[in-house]
Computed example of a mutant assay.
Amino acid sequence: MKIAFSPCPNDTFVFHAWAHGLIPGAPELDILYADIDITNNLADRREGPEVMKISYAALPWVLSDYALLPCGGALGRGCGPLVLTKGDSADTNDPAQLSGKRVAVPSERSTAYLLFRLWAAQNVPGGVGEIVVMPFHQIMPAVRDGLIDAGLVIHEARFTYQNYGLNLLEDMGNWWEQDTGLPIPLGAIIARRHLDVQSLTNWTRASVEYAWANPDASLDYVMSHAQEMSPEVAKAHIDLYVNEFTRNLGDEGYAAITALLGRAAEQGLVPAFDLALLKK
């Protein structure tokens, strides 16, 4: 079975057991390690693998063909994307400094960018200027080097942005949680609707359970894909993004997804869609 997910520690930790044939009855995986911008576009073009990790923000474009699995993804609290600027910027905590400026984002259909658009509509007078899409690991160096005015970052950047001399302008997760009281939906696991979605759910959940029961078993696999990340940062990344919502979205998880995508649809930021498809 073909599957696509990122090389980030949370994804490799979650899928380690399945990828290594440790889940009874689960099919062998043919894995594509891909940045979220790639998988978001593959899903939209219906050209991607049977199972994929995409942004929750990309779901409205693909739900007619792909089902949302209620496990395996990334959703939680205190784990939102960050808006970063150079540390020596004037008025470093004033969102108005982004008016008309160039901002780098990891994907135009990422949850990070969707949250940023919702936040900017309330906080940046006149809106930002040019949006530049680039791989997430290139964003912080670009901000540091003055190639862009601000960057929207995800993943382990939460733990490393200070190393680039950057300033935290806003935490999108904190903003969302204060605004709604709900956790933040980041990455979703989807599968083509013609497949046995229940079995895929069971195998994915079993892989999550194995990872928690055997936390050291995946270490070599995780670090081999961790893009020069230190073991300490990789562990912090896993601890933050792999949580009870990874095991099961539950009522609170579905409420957060519905709130985010429902609001985005009302503002015309994503296509209108049947919210009931989230559970079908």
Rank of each mutant, 00 (worst) to 15 (best):
K2G: 11
K2P: 13
K2M: 10
D11N: 14
T12L: 03
T12R: 10
V14K: 08
F15R: 08
A19C: 13
H20K: 06
P24Q: 00
G25W: 03
G25I: 00
A26N: 04
D30E: 12
I31K: 09
I31Y: 08
A34C: 01
A34I: 00
I36G: 03
I38S: 03
I38C: 03
N40V: 05
R45P: 01
P49F: 01
M52P: 10
M52T: 10
M52F: 07
I54H: 09
P60N: 03
W61S: 12
V62A: 11
D65C: 11
D65R: 14
D65Y: 14
A67V: 07
C71M: 06
C79E: 15
C79W: 07
P81I: 09
L84N: 01
K86N: 15
G87S: 07
G100N: 10
V103T: 10
V105F: 09
P106V: 04
Y113R: 15
L114I: 08
N123Y: 02
P125E: 11
G127A: 04
V128L: 02
G129F: 05
F136W: 15
I139W: 03
M140A: 14
A142Y: 07
A142P: 00
A150L: 06
V153W: 01
I154C: 13
A157R: 05
G165F: 07
L166I: 08
M172Y: 05
N174I: 11
W176S: 02
Q178S: 12
D179L: 11
D179A: 14
T180Q: 09
I184H: 01
P185R: 05
A191D: 13
R193Q: 04
H194N: 12
T201G: 03
N202V: 00
V208S: 06
V208I: 14
E209W: 07
A211S: 15
W212M: 12
P215F: 04
A217M: 07
D220F: 08
Y221N: 12
M223T: 02
A226G: 11
A226R: 02
A226S: 14
Q227K: 15
E228K: 14
M229N: 12
M229F: 04
M229R: 12
S230N: 06
A234R: 05
A234Q: 06
Y241F: 15
E244G: 11
F245V: 02
N248W: 07
G250I: 08
A256C: 11
T258N: 13
L260Q: 07
L261P: 05
A265H: 04
E266S: 13
G268H: 01
V270L: 09
P271H: 02
D274F: 01
D274L: 05
L275Q: 14
K279G: 09
K279N: 13
K280V: 08
K280L: 10
